[in-house]
Amino acid sequence: MAEVISPTRMNLLQRRNQLRVAQQGVDLLKRKRDALVADFFKIVRQSLAARDQLAAACRDAYVLLAVAKAVEGREALEAAAIPARRDLLIDIEVRNVWGTKIPEVAVVPVRRQALERGQNPVATSARTIESAANFEEVVAAILAVAATEIKLRKIGEEIKKTTRRVNALEQVVIPRLRGETRYISSVLEQRAREDVFRLKRIKKKLEAKAADA
C-alpha cells in the first residue's frame, strides 16, 4: 500500500533534503565505482600476466618431471620427494580501498636450495633437484595468481554492489522523491491560490459592506 504523503511544508522541505542527499550519494557512489573499475582493469592486466607465467611454469615443470620420472624411475623421485614436504605459511593483510576490504596476499619466497629441501646431493640427480625447483616456481606462480584473483573477485563484487545502489537511487529513490516533491508543491501552491482567492473575496465583501454603510 503506497505511503500516504501529508502535503505539508515540513514534508516538502524534508523531501527536498532527502533528494539532495540522494543525488550527492549517487555522485559519490559513481566516483567510487569509477575508482574501483580503474583498479579492476589494472589488476586484470596483472592477473592475465600471472596466469601466463603460471602456464609457462607448469609446462616446464611437468615436462622435466616426466623426463626425470622416466630416466630415474618413479621410485627414485618418490624417494627424493619424501623429505621435501613442508607447510607454507602465507601472510594475508586486509587493505581498505574505498570502504572495501581487499585481502592482500604477501609474496613469500618459495624456492629453496637442495639441502634446505633435505635432498641428498650425492644421491639426488640434477634433474630431480631442478624438477623440485621448477615446482616451487609453480607454487610461487599459483600464489601470485591467487593474490590477483582474490582481489579481482572482491573488487568485482563491490563494483556490482555499487552499481546496484546507484541504479536503485537513480531509478527508484530519486524519481520517487521528485514525484513526492512535485505533488506536495502543487498541493501547497493550490492551497495558496485558494487562500488568495478567499481573502480577495472577503476583502470585496468587507469593502462592499463599508460602502453600504
Binding site: 621410485e75 618418490e78 624417494a79 619424501i82 623429505p83 641428498n120 644421491a123
Partner: peptide, 23 residues
C-alpha cells in the same frame, strides 16, 4: 637405493605402503 628410500620414508613418518611405493 632401496635403503635410502626406506630410511627417508620412516624418518618422515610415512606409512609402510607409501614408503614401499618408492622401492
Amino acid at each position: 637405493a632401496n635403503l635410502r628410500a626406506i630410511v627417508r620414508g620412516r624418518h618422515a613418518g610415512r606409512s609402510a605402503g607409501e614408503t614401499l611405493e618408492a622401492v
